[in-house]
Design a protein around this nucleic acid. Structure first.
Lengths: 338, 338
DNA sequence: TTGAAAGCGATACCAT
DNA sequence: ATGGTATCGCTTTCAA
C-alpha cells in the first residue's frame, strides 16, 4: 500500500517551522538562516522528504523538462545524438521527456501531447514540424530547435550540419581523384538533409562539367543502400563512384559491391558516405565520409535553446556547421595525388 | 510574450457551463451528456485548449509518465530496446521520462530526481539499483522493472535474456563442432549479464571435460573486443574459438583476426557473439550469435510493469527468456555435421 | 446530468 | 529571517 506521501507540511511540523520555510530551505537562492535550513534538512532526511516536482511546476509555471522528439532512433547516427543531448541536459539539471516519432507519423500530431506536459522547450531531431505548428509554439512561448532538419520561413530555429557544403566537398574529392561516372543514392526524398546533400553534390558536379549522373532512391537504411547498389552496378555503364546520403547506406553499398558483386572497393568502385558513424572506421569498411560535427551541433542547439529559454523573443536562427571530409580507403586516389 | 494560458475556466465561460463540466468532458468515462460534451469541445478547439497534464497529475496523484533509466545508450543493442519501449509505451498513451545513466554513475544517485517527478513506474535498463533503493521504491509504491539485469533477493522484478542458457548453447555448439581451445572475452565484470554468460559457458565447458580456457577482460565495446583478441592470439597456444560476451566485441574480434592478424575466420579461428545486432548479419561479418528475443523481453517487461501498476503488491518476479542460436559463417563447422 | 467547493503540494507575495 | 495566505489548473466529492 502506497504509504501517504511526505509533504512539506510534515517536514515543517517535525522541524518546528512553517511550511513556507521548508519551501525556502529547498530553494538555494532563498533567504533562510543557516540554522533553520539545517533543521529543515535534518527533518527532511529523517522523513525521506523530497519536494514534489509536479506541484512545484504547477506553481512556478515551468517544469524544468525539455521535450526531445526523435525519429529513426535506431539509425546508427542518432543514438549518439540522444546520448549527448541527455547527458548535457542532465548536467544542467533538466529532465528529458522523450517522444519517438514513429516512421511515417506526423510530428504535428504528437506535439499537442508534449505540450500538455508543459515542457519548457523542445528539441526535434531528424523530423520536422509544419510552420503552422511552429507558430502555435511560438505563440505560447515554447522554444523549439530543429536538429538536423530545417523549415524555411518557419518560426523556429534549426541547427544542421552544412550538408550542401559537405556534399560539394565530396563531389570535388571524387572528381579530383579521377572519377568519371558518379552516382548518388538518396535518402528519404523529402528530408532537408537529403535535399541539401543531393543539391550540393549535383551543383558542384555541374559546375565542374559533369552534366549527368545516376540517381537511385534509398531510404537511409543498410538494406536500401545494398539494394540500390545492386541496381546501379548492373547498368550498361555502371558508375565508378557512389555517394550515399548516409553512412549506413554506404556500408550496405560496400557489402553489396564486395560480397554480392565481387567487385574490389576502391579499385573497381569508390564509395563514400556521410555521418562518420563508428562502423565507418572499422577495418572491414574504412569508409571515406563527411564527419558530422556532433558535439558542436549539440552545443549550438543547446545554446540556441537556452537563449530562447530566458528570452522567448529572440529571432529564430539557422546554424549551419561544416564537417570535414575523412579520407579512408573506400575511395580510389588519383596517382597524381600523394 | 507568452500569452496567458487557456484554462478550463475560459472554456467553461465560452461554452456556458461550469468548469467541473469541462473537466468531465475531457474525461472519457465521465458522465456528461453528448450535447454538453460537444459544446465543450467546440469551445475548447476554438480557444486552443488542452488540459494541463501537470495540474491533472497533481490532483490525480499519478502522472502517466514512465521513467526509463538507461546506460550505454549508444551500445548497438540498446537503441532497439529504447525504440521499442518508447513505441509501446506511447501506444498505451504514456509518456517517457528518460534518464541517461552515465558510465560509472550510480543509478541510486539519480533515482531521487526521477522520483521527484512522480513517475508512475520505472524501467531500468542495463543498470542496477541497490536493494535498499528497491525497498524505498517498494515502500512508496513505485513499480520498478529491471531489464537485462537483476539483483538477487532485491525487492524488484527483472526480465532478462536467459544468459546462462545461451552461453551453454554456445559451449555446446563450439564443442560439437570440434573446437578444442575456447576462449572467453568478458564484458563489464560486475554486470549480471556478464556473470551469467561466463558462468553458463564455463559450466558447460567443464561438464564436457574442458577444464581450462582463456579469459580476457573486455568492456562490451568494439575496441575492447579488438584489443583482447590481439592479446589472445599472440599466446603460445592461441585459442581456436572465441566467445565474446556481446556482438560488438565479436565484430571487433573478427576485424582484429582478419585485418590485423591476417587470420581466416572461421577456418583458423571461430568467433561467436551474443545479442544479434543488425551488423551481425551483414555480409562482412556473418556472425554466429545468440539472438536476444527483444520483442518478447519488452513484452514481458511491460506486462510486469502494468501488472504492478494496478496492483503494487504483486510479488517481484524474475523472467528469463531463452534466445536461439543463430548460426552464420564466423564459426567453423565439423565435417561430420551437415 | 450539472455546479460549487475542497483539495493536490508546492511557490511567492505580503506582513510581521 | 519567518509565517500566513492566495495561487497554479486541474479532479473529485457532495448537493442540487
Amino acid at each position: 500500500m502506497a504509504s501517504k506521501r511526505v509533504t512539506s507540511f510534515d517536514v515543517a511540523d517535525l522541524a518546528g517551522v512553517s511550511q513556507s520555510t521548508v519551501s525556502r530551505a529547498f530553494t538555494p537562492e532563498a533567504k533562510v538562516s543557516k540554522k533553520t535550513r539545517q533543521k529543515v534538512f535534518a527533518a527532511a532526511t529523517k522523513l525521506g522528504y523530497q519536494p514534489d516536482a509536479i506541484a512545484r511546476s504547477l506553481s512556478t509555471r515551468h517544469t524544468n523538462i525539455i521535450g526531445i522528439v526523435m525519429a529513426h532512433i535506431t539509425s546508427p547516427f542518432y543514438p549518439y545524438v540522444l546520448d549527448k543531448f541527455t547527458q548535457r541536459l542532465q548536467e544542467m539539471g533538466r529532465q528529458i521527456l522523450l517522444f519517438n516519432a514513429a516512421a511515417g507519423q506526423d510530428v504535428d500530431d504528437i506535439l499537442p501531447l508534449v505540450l500538455q506536459y508543459r515542457v519548457d522547450g523542445l528539441i526535434i531531431t531528424s523530423a520536422t514540424i509544419s510552420s503552422e505548428m511552429a507558430d502555435v509554439l511560438a505563440r505560447d512561448g515554447t522554444p523549439v530547435i530543429l536538429f538536423n532538419r530545417y523549415v524555411l520561413g518557419a518560426n523556429c530555429s534549426a541547427v544542421c550540419c552544412d550538408n550542401v557544403d559537405g556534399a560539394r566537398k565530396i563531389a570535388d574529392f571524387l572528381l579530383d581523384n579521377g572519377h568519371k561516372r558518379p552516382a548518388y543514392i538518396a535518402g528519404d526524398a523529402n528530408t532537408s538533409t537529403n535535399i541539401d546533400r543531393e543539391k550540393g553534390f549535383g551543383d558542384r558536379l555541374r559546375e565542374r562539367g559533369i552534366i549527368q549522373w545516376y540517381h537511385e532512391q534509398g531510404e537511409y537504411t543498410y538494406q536500401s543502400g545494398y539494394d540500390a547498389t545492386l541496381r546501379l552496378m548492373q547498368l550498361a555503364k555502371p558508375p565508378d563512384a557512389i555517394f550515399c546520403a548516409n553512412d549506413v547506406m554506404a556500408l550496405g553499398a560496400l557489402d553489396a559491391a564486395r560480397h554480392a558483386l565481387g567487385l574490389r572497393v576502391p579499385e573497381d568502385l569508390s564509395i563514400i558516405g556521410f555521418d562518420d558513424i563508428p562502423a565507418a572506421s572499422w577495418p572491414s569498411y574504412m569508409l571515406t565520409t563527411i564527419r558530422q560535427p556532433v558535439t558542436r551541433m549539440i552545443d549550438a542547439t543547446l545554446d540556441l535553446l537556452l537563449e530562447r529559454l530566458d528570452n522567448p523573443k529572440v529571432e529564430p536562427a539557422l546554424k549551419l556547421i561544416p564537417g570535414p571530409l575523412i579520407q579512408r580507403n573506400s575511395t580510389r586516389v588519383a596517382e597524381t595525388q600523394t
